[in-house]
Design a protein around this nucleic acid. Structure first.
Length: 741
DNA sequence: AGCACGCCGACT
DNA sequence: GTCGGCGTGCTC
């Protein structure tokens, strides 16, 4: 029935499922606008001629600012009466017939933006792609044909859906039994003989099925994935994590629920897509920043259908609409790619947490998503983030107990290899590399891309700095020195200390490492993979792969050895998260080794290296979190940065007076210039607050921002047009970089 | 962003 | 008493 047989149940169209005015004369509309003052619902009259075609979630054009100026927006709800004292203007027009904003996504956008001090419209821009009329027509024609083919039996649009609803009733309360019951339905579903479901193995009884069964009852889990690649039935290799998450997502799907898989980058997407395809699931909806608009919109429309789907995408996939969402699965939430660079800068992890906490309470129409229980939440990774560790420690997320399989790690510290450098690597590491190369590929992870990260004066040895911006000079390419900040070539460089004219390379970038390896391991095939030229996959033949962190290719069968270089350099990065990031980079690299391969930590020492070598990363993380608790650093507390003109910032901070659990650092001047070319005279303060205070802090700072924006039109008059006021108040919540200087 | 409204100074 | 400039605030 419902699950895999989704398309056998004539699915009511999104239009039919959405709430109609039903005689109510008022429509509440969220306008498309970036202005914070307009981030609330505006009431409009439902005109008689549109009463039949208006639906909740629909895109509309409404008069705004004057009778004949029109603005786009979404209908969020209908109401009997309006609180607005003036007379209501009527909705002018509809945009298509598809209700694009589901009630769930509206509540999600509102909750997420409230938490981050931003506008709901900014979230909706991530959630809803731009409409493509051609794509929409195609989709509507196709689903009309589908419905036509199935409906004649006389089954109402609710037939299949409500059957599912019945067994779901106690879902959020029950534990395992609910999962078994539903899993039993699946084999019946297979009997419908639908295309695409034939080859699926019902994974009942597997650990993945057990996790899925928990997820659909609303469980929140943290899971450490085992190291090692896995060969798919198609012959392709993917990370074992991808094979496992694909099975979990598929098991959720077979319980009649949608699953959303959120991953950092497109290489992760490809692996999961392949793993799902190998399990027989080809209908995955992809949400990907590299897609064309038409592709994105087509996928979006499919996600709106009244059928469970597996949705696979990068950070904005967390906002995808989904029918009866059963699980949100986030892979490697510590990866900075999951941090949204657009306002209001909400991390996909936080959006997932909010989405998984929303329980449907709104009145339902038909078998709408509101009726479904809360989705489950799964954070999976090879290395836990401090944020998820915190969630585990406060008991909000449950840690999976089964210990992951881990590549054997060897530490070749300086005591083992007393300065025996024969080239780029110590002799012990060189031996490991040579041994590995006899039977397969070897991975060497290095800290820095390019040729050499640093240039120094040949005469006095001082660091070379850019004449234009004072940034550090390095060699991205052999012989070509350029500024690492602004990219300016250092052609006529002069040492400010000794007036020397020549500089030389210091340190080892990936390109220089390749150069050295070609000498040190003569005859070996040396392959470079870095951010600029990433290699996604390599074959099983012997090769020495030099990769920067995060750009390691997947090797068929896994690497014979994984060698981690430059630990001191990575740990020396001036970041609050340096230790946590290192553990993630190292664990992810070690996971690429073959089951009988080795991981060699070639240098370094100290607690982080020790934790990695001994496999005691959770203990280290616990200690780290305790330290941050004591220092009031995130994620033990939340932070918000408040920047702008000194007066504006002071006004905003004054709103927080008298709130307990809140303290502030600064304001301090923001240095003008820099990478973002900050204008002179701006200041920034950092507000730290307990999680319990988050709603209140966001509400008050947001209030200050709205007031500032409202008064801004007056103050900005007479200024050069087009440019935003530089001293305007800016808010940024939970910025991971605030303490990194 | 653009428009209306109101407060205040200057002028027939 | 009234016209109009400009600063302020609202937009259903």
């Amino acid at each position: 029935m419902r699950a895999c047989s989704g398309s056998a149940v004539s699915p009511a169209s999104a239009f039919e499922r959405a709430e109609a005015p039903n005689g109510r004369p008022v429509a509440r509309v969220l306008l498309d606008s970036a202005l914070p003052q307009l981030d609330h619902l505006f009431d409009y009259a439902v005109p008689d001629e549109l009463a039949e075609v208006l639906r909740v979630g629909q895109r509309v054009r409404v008069p705004f600012r004057s009778k004949d100026r029109k603005n786009f927006g979404y209908i969020v709800e209908f109401a009997e009466r309006s609180e607005f004292s003036g007379s209501l203007a009527p909705i002018a027009d509809t945009v298509g017939t598809v209700p694009m904003l589901t009630p769930e996504i509206w509540r999600l956008a509102r909750a997420v933006s409230d938490r981050a001090g931003g506008s709901a419209g900014d979230i909706l821009r991530l959630a809803i792609p731009t409409r493509q009329v051609r794509v929409e027509k195609q989709h509507l024609a196709a689903s009309a044909a589908d419905a036509e083919a199935v409906r004649p039996a006389g089954a109402g649009p609710e037939g299949g859906g409500s059957a599912g609803e019945g067994s779901e009733g106690g879902g959020s309360a029950g534990e395992g039994s609910e999962g078994e019951g539903s899993a039993g339905d699946v084999s019946e579903g297979d009997a419908t003989g639908l295309p695409g479901t034939g080859g699926l193995e019902a994974p009942a009884g597997t650990p993945e099925a057990a996790i899925a069964a928990e997820l659909v009852t609303g469980a929140r889990l943290a899971h450490l994935a085992s190291h090692g690649p896995e060969r798919l039935e198609t012959g392709e290799w993917v990370g074992g994590w991808a094979a496992q998450l694909a099975k979990i997502a598929l098991a959720v799907f077979e319980l009649g629920r949608s699953a959303i898989l959120v991953v950092p980058d497109y290489r992760d997407l490809d692996q999961l897509r392949d793993a799902l395809a190998a399990l027989g699931h080809e209908e995955t909806i992809r949400v990907d920043s590299r897609q064309s608009n038409a592709e994105r919109y087509a996928g979006f429309l499919r996600a709106l259908d009244a059928e469970p789907r597996i949705i696979l995408g990068n950070r904005s996939a967390v906002y995808a609409p989904a029918h009866r969402l059963g699980a949100i699965i986030v892979w490697d939430d510590g990866d900075p790619l999951l941090a949204e660079p657009l306002a209001p800068y909400v991390h996909a992890r936080d959006a997932a947490l909010v989405r998984a906490s929303l329980r449907g309470e709104a009145p339902l129409v038909d078998e709408g998503d509101e009726g479904a229980p809360r989705p489950g939440l799964l954070f999976a990774s090879h290395a836990r983030s401090a944020e998820v560790q915190r969630l585990v420690e406060i008991g909000y997320v449950r840690s999976q107990l089964n210990p992951p399989r881990r590549t054997r790690v060897i530490h070749a510290d300086s005591s083992m290899t007393p300065d025996a450098f024969a080239g780029r690597v110590p002799e012990y590491a060189a031996r490991t590399i040579r041994e590995g190369l006899r039977s397969g590929p070897v991975l060497v992870q290095v800290a820095t891309p390019g040729y050499a990260p640093v240039a120094v004066c040949v005469e006095c040895g001082d660091l070379a700095r850019c004449a234009a911006c004072a940034g550090p000079i390095g060699f991205r390419v052999v012989g070509r020195a350029s500024c690492r900040w602004c990219g300016e070539y250092a052609a006529d460089w002069r040492c400010p200390t000794c007036d020397g004219r020549r500089m030389e390379e210091r340190g080892m970038g990936s390109a220089r490492t390749v150069e050295q390896f070609e000498r040190q391991f003569e005859g070996a095939r040396v392959i470079l993979s870095d951010g600029e030229h990433p290699r996604e996959r390599i074959d099983a033949r012997p090769a020495l792969v030099v990769a920067t962190r995060g750009a390691e290719p997947l090797a068929a069968g896994g690497y014979r050895a994984v060698v981690l270089l430059d630990a001191e350099r990575l740990l020396g990065l001036e970041s609050l998260r340096a230790g946590e990031d290192c553990l993630r980079w190292w664990e992810n690299a070690a996971a690429l080794a073959a089951p009988d391969g080795r991981c060699l930590m070639a240098s370094g020492g100290g607690p982080v290296v020790q934790a990695f070598v001994l496999g005691q990363t959770e203990q280290w993380l616990r200690g780290e979190l305790r330290d941050r608790q004591a220092l009031r650093y995130p994620p033990a507390v939340r932070v918000a940065s408040v920047s702008g003109g000194p007066a504006e910032v002071e006004r905003a901070l004054a709103q927080l007076d008298g709130l307990s659990g809140v303290d502030r650092l600064g304001p301090t001047p923001i240095p003008p210039g820099g990478p973002a070319n900050t204008p002179r005279g701006l200041v920034r303060a950092i507000v730290r607050f307990d999680y319990a205070r988050g709603d209140e802090v966001a509400r008050r700072l947001r209030g200050a921002l709205v007031a500032d924006a409202a008064g801004s039109s007056a103050r900005s008059r007479g200024r050069q047009p087009g440019r935003a006021r530089p001293e305007a108040l800016r808010l940024r919540f939970d910025d991971r970089g605030v303490f990194d200087g």
